[in-house]
């Protein structure tokens, strides 16, 4: 594996290998000295065209725990807004010498263009491209699900589990990444969203669809419930808004105490963050014992360590 651009590119074996490696990484993080020498001498560039402090810090911590040199390149304003072009930025980083580039960009496909246009030699990790993919998020979600529910699965993957994603599927790279990976790992995926927030073409996806959270709770045995962040701007724009109001969103799709109580007792609650408390998720749900939201963050570091290790360390021993 040279790059990590999309979960659609991962075979089941590759995905499991990343999760297994992440498990090893997580173990090392329980040691007194958490730093590993694995990527000493390697340079990882965090190339962020879009603000995301959480994801950038997670990658930064992961790279530093592997002893890589980390450069944070925050390119505010992409060529979309007449800044330096993606190509020139890539050529600059290449000239300075980088072994891996972690890229976050507002344009779908930016990571793939960076990896395949011949501008750079090193590996590319997609840390979120537009409304397309965010593969390390899906991997950390799968890792978290496996940790909590793995014994309910009849395999080393997620076979037999039902994972339900709620919210803005249309604009969500987290959803797209998860749908591919969860399906590859054998889970069954349910999407819950109003028709305005589902893409045309969703009928070609390997998913089942419900339009309200109650409908989904009635129809499916949910093992993991993933609440997606709703962007407030989706409600504005007058006639172009995707739903009428925040209150109506909460009424139809929000995870409140009553819906929380209807979940099977083993079910876990997830959220990629940052949360809009009181909108897509209530405080009761977010802070309940079945919420694994904070753990998702720490698992994110382990998964990103695994990805950087597998891409950059070659066949070196852990």
């Amino acid at each position: 594996m040279k790059h990590l651009l999309s979960t659609a590119d991962l075979t089941r074996d590759e995905a499991l290998h990343i999760l297994d490696t992440a498990q090893e990484m997580a173990k090392t993080q329980e040691r007194e000295v958490r730093k590993l020498p694995t990527l000493r001498g390697k340079t990882v560039v965090n190339l962020f065209f879009e603000d995301s402090t959480r994801t950038r810090i997670s990658f930064e911590v992961a790279a530093k725990r592997l002893s890589a040199d980390v450069i944070n390149f925050s390119a505010k304003g992409s060529s979309v807004s007449k800044g330096e072009s993606l190509k020139d930025t890539a050529l600059t980083l290449e000239a300075m010498g980088s072994d891996g580039i972690v890229i976050r960009h507002s344009a779908s496909g930016a990571a793939e263009r960076l990896a395949t246009s011949g501008w750079i030699q090193g590996s590319v990790v997609n840390a979120g491209d537009g409304t397309h993919q965010h593969p390390t998020q899906a991997l950390l979600d799968a890792f978290t699900i496996r940790r909590h529910l793995g014994e309910r699965s009849d395999s080393t993957g997620l076979d037999g589990l039902t994972v339900t994603l709620v919210g803005d599927i249309l604009h969500s790279r987290v959803a797209r990444s998860n749908i591919h990976l969860l399906t590859t790992l054998g889970a069954s995926v349910v999407l819950v969203a109003p028709p305005t927030l589902l893409p045309i073409g969703v009928e070609t996806w390997p998913v089942r669809v419900a339009h309200t959270l109650d409908e989904a709770l009635d129809a499916f045995d949910i093992d993991a419930l993933m609440m997606l962040r709703i962007q407030l701007e989706r409600m504005s724009g007058g006639g172009a808004a995707f739903f009428p109001s925040p209150a109506e969103y909460s009424r139809l799709l929000g995870l409140d105490a009553a819906r929380l109580a209807r979940l099977p007792s083993h079910a876990i609650i997830m959220h990629p963050g940052p949360m809009n408390r009181g909108l897509e998720i209530s405080a009761e749900a977010a802070d309940s014992p079945r919420s694994v939201i904070v753990e998702q963050v720490s698992n994110g570091v382990a998964v990103r360590m695994a990805v950087l290790y597998l891409l950059l360390a070659g066949e070196a021993e852990l």
């Binding site: 659609a8 779908s108 496909g109 409304t131 397309h132 790279r173 893409p199 045309i200 073409g201 996806w205």
Partner: peptide, 17 residues
């Protein structure tokens, strides 16, 4: 950005219906 359909849904590009 491109024709709205199964491919735009998968690529995450805004659809041109």
């Amino acid at each position: 950005q491109m024709h709205e359909g199964a491919v735009s849904a998968s690529l995450g590009l805004a659809g041109w219906p």
